[in-house]
Structure formats: structure tokens, C-alpha cells
Amino acid sequence: MIRILNMSLKYKFILLCFCVVLSCAQDKKESQDSNTTESIENTSWLVVNLKGETEFSRQPTIRIDLSGKGISGSSGCNRYFGDVTINKNQVKISNVGSTKMMCNNINTEQLFFEALNEATFFKAEGNTLKLMSKDKKVIIECSHLKEGN
């Protein structure tokens, strides 16, 4: 009887270990799929939604260079540049400057810089990047730009 009980406990222990290993592997895969700095390192993004606006005469872009801790791109009118710091799912964009070309419709640019200033959190999943305000409302949504586009 004790021998059967020991065999039963051995199989339960093996099953428990197997479940723990599978669970750890799944957690690792999920953490790799989103919100890692590697997922946005040296990437370019096309803004597809800016505080509810989806129609642009010229779409803003975002380029993130974490090695140089910089952000740059087009505001839809002017080129811009600034500093970016990322810690887990938090983002801080600061010291943003831009060229000063005249544009017919400056509203997109003003809205874009306002949203960059409000960005507090980010979420990167696959080909989508979302920048969110402190209340975690999506203020900028982007799709990944392939290099060379």
C-alpha cells in the first residue's frame, strides 16, 4: 500500500513540475510579446490616430532610438527631435524641439506636440505602438514602419 502511495505521489510531483515549467515558459513568451524596450528599440512608427483624429494631410512619424535616448520624426509639417526615457511601461518625452517651416494646416502639429508632452505610458504589441496619458487613455496610436519606407 505504501509503495502504491509513493508511486502516486511521485507522479503528482512530476505533473506539478511539468505544469510549473509550462507556466514559466508562457509567462516569458508573453513578456517578450509586449512592452519590452527591445520591441521599440530603433523603430519607426506612423501615427494613425492622434487624440481621435485619423485623417491627416501629412501623417506624423515617430522614430525611437533608445541607445541615444532620443525621439525624432515628422510632426506632419516640421522635423522634430527630443529626449526619451523608458522604464518598464512608462515613457517620458522631454526637450522637444523642431524646425520652423510654415505649413498650411498647423493644427495636426500642435495636437501632436501636445500629445507627446502628455505621454506617460506606452504599450507595444506586434505592429502597434500606443502612447497613453497618465489616466491610461490612448492619445497616440501608431503602426510600425518597415525600414526603407
Results as ranks from 00 to 15, higher is better:
residue 48 V to L: 11
residue 14 I to N: 01
residue 128 T to K: 13
residue 15 L to Q: 08
residue 100 K to L: 06
residue 1 M to R: 12
residue 8 S to L: 08
residue 75 S to P: 00
residue 110 Q to N: 09
residue 130 K to N: 13
residue 103 C to Q: 04
residue 107 N to V: 13
residue 18 F to D: 00
residue 81 F to T: 03
residue 110 Q to V: 09
residue 28 K to G: 06
residue 62 I to D: 04
residue 137 K to S: 15
residue 82 G to D: 06
residue 78 N to Y: 04
residue 47 V to L: 03
residue 47 V to M: 03
residue 92 K to C: 11
residue 132 M to S: 03
residue 11 Y to N: 04
residue 1 M to F: 12
residue 82 G to I: 11
residue 99 T to H: 10
residue 38 E to I: 14
residue 122 F to G: 05
residue 96 V to K: 07
residue 21 V to Q: 06
residue 9 L to T: 12
residue 52 G to Y: 08
residue 145 L to Y: 00
residue 57 S to D: 15
residue 69 K to C: 13
residue 148 G to K: 01
residue 113 F to I: 00
residue 123 K to H: 09
residue 12 K to I: 15
residue 8 S to W: 01
residue 52 G to R: 10
residue 149 N to L: 15
residue 60 P to V: 10
residue 17 C to G: 12
residue 134 K to P: 05
residue 50 L to M: 10
residue 92 K to H: 07
residue 46 L to P: 04
residue 23 S to F: 15
residue 72 S to R: 03
residue 99 T to K: 01
residue 85 T to V: 03
residue 14 I to L: 07
residue 50 L to Y: 06
residue 86 I to H: 01
residue 124 A to I: 14
residue 100 K to W: 04
residue 43 T to V: 15
residue 54 T to E: 15
residue 109 E to Q: 06
residue 98 S to N: 04
residue 72 S to W: 08
residue 52 G to L: 10
residue 8 S to Q: 04
residue 40 I to C: 02
residue 11 Y to H: 00
residue 128 T to P: 00
residue 76 G to E: 06
residue 77 C to Q: 11
residue 135 D to L: 03
residue 114 E to Y: 11
residue 37 T to Y: 12
residue 130 K to C: 15
residue 110 Q to F: 08
residue 99 T to A: 02
residue 71 I to G: 00
residue 63 R to P: 11
residue 30 E to M: 14
residue 3 R to V: 10
residue 134 K to F: 01
residue 133 S to C: 00
residue 2 I to H: 07
residue 82 G to C: 05
residue 103 C to S: 05
residue 11 Y to S: 02
residue 118 E to L: 15
residue 137 K to T: 12
residue 77 C to A: 13
residue 43 T to P: 13
residue 39 S to I: 00
residue 129 L to C: 00
residue 93 I to A: 03
residue 71 I to R: 03
residue 75 S to I: 06
residue 93 I to T: 03
residue 94 S to D: 13
residue 146 K to I: 14
residue 56 F to R: 01
residue 86 I to M: 07
residue 76 G to V: 06
residue 38 E to Y: 09
residue 76 G to M: 02
residue 65 D to Q: 06
residue 66 L to Y: 15
residue 12 K to M: 15
residue 42 N to H: 05
